[in-house]
Computed example of a mutant assay.
Amino acid sequence: VSIPRCEARLLIGDARQTIQDLVCQGFQADAIFLDPFSPQRCPQLWTVEFLSLVAQCLAPAGHLATYCRAAAVRSALQEAGLHLGTLPIVAPRHSHEWAQGTVARWQPDQLIPLSLMEQEHLQTRAGIPYRDPHLRDSAQTIRWRRQVEQQTANRESTSRWRHRWGIT
């Protein structure tokens, strides 16, 4: 059995700046595992702008995987031009357990499609992504900007969506 060569690099610093350097270098990864803190706690690394740069570092046949299934993050990945897939839970124990995470690719093949419930989740207010136009705003500013957009959006509330799907 032949084991393919694997290379990893640890880059220390503000990821929002480091990713810009990687894009400039033309860096391409076959696999990216995105594992920052939760979007609410660390929205800086879940914005459309940041994820668009991460996507630029994804090789044409590459896969990006994250534990996150938040509608805001999935919407941001879509805005970055990626196709979405789900990591389903084999035996969910609660109604709020519908996926273990998200996989994204440039091409839709090799993905488990989002369920109708997950697709509809993207259309709720929860699906409004975080934004950081200049990649330097504080978490508080990014959260505030999203809240303002959510309050003015003509979208279904997430609580209504949850009720419709029986999610407690």
Rank of each mutant, 00 (worst) to 15 (best):
I3F: 05
R5T: 12
C6D: 05
C6A: 12
I12S: 10
D14T: 05
A15E: 00
A15C: 10
A15I: 04
R16E: 03
D21K: 15
L22W: 02
L22N: 00
V23P: 06
C24S: 14
Q25W: 06
F27N: 01
Q28K: 15
D30R: 11
A31R: 11
A31F: 12
I32W: 01
F33H: 10
F37I: 06
P39R: 03
P39M: 04
P39E: 01
Q44W: 02
L45I: 01
L45F: 10
F50P: 04
F50T: 04
S52W: 00
L53T: 08
V54F: 05
A55M: 01
A55I: 07
C57L: 11
A59N: 07
A59I: 02
A61V: 07
A61W: 08
H63S: 15
H63N: 14
H63K: 11
H63V: 15
L64V: 02
R69W: 13
R69P: 07
A70D: 11
A70T: 05
A72P: 00
V73C: 08
Q78I: 05
Q78M: 14
E79K: 13
E79R: 13
L82Q: 02
G85R: 05
G85N: 06
T86S: 15
T86W: 01
T86F: 03
I89C: 13
I89L: 14
V90C: 00
A91K: 13
R93W: 01
R93P: 03
H94G: 06
G101K: 08
V103Q: 12
R105S: 03
W106M: 05
L111P: 07
M117Q: 15
E118P: 01
E120K: 14
L122V: 10
L122H: 08
L122F: 09
Q123K: 13
Q123N: 09
A126D: 15
G127F: 12
I128G: 00
I128H: 04
P129G: 03
Y130A: 05
R131M: 12
P133E: 08
P133R: 09
P133D: 03
P133K: 07
H134D: 12
A139T: 03
Q140P: 03
T141V: 12
W144T: 10
R145S: 10
R146M: 07
V148D: 07
Q150L: 09
Q150P: 01
T152N: 13
T152L: 14
N154V: 11
S159D: 11
H163K: 15
W165Q: 00
G166R: 01
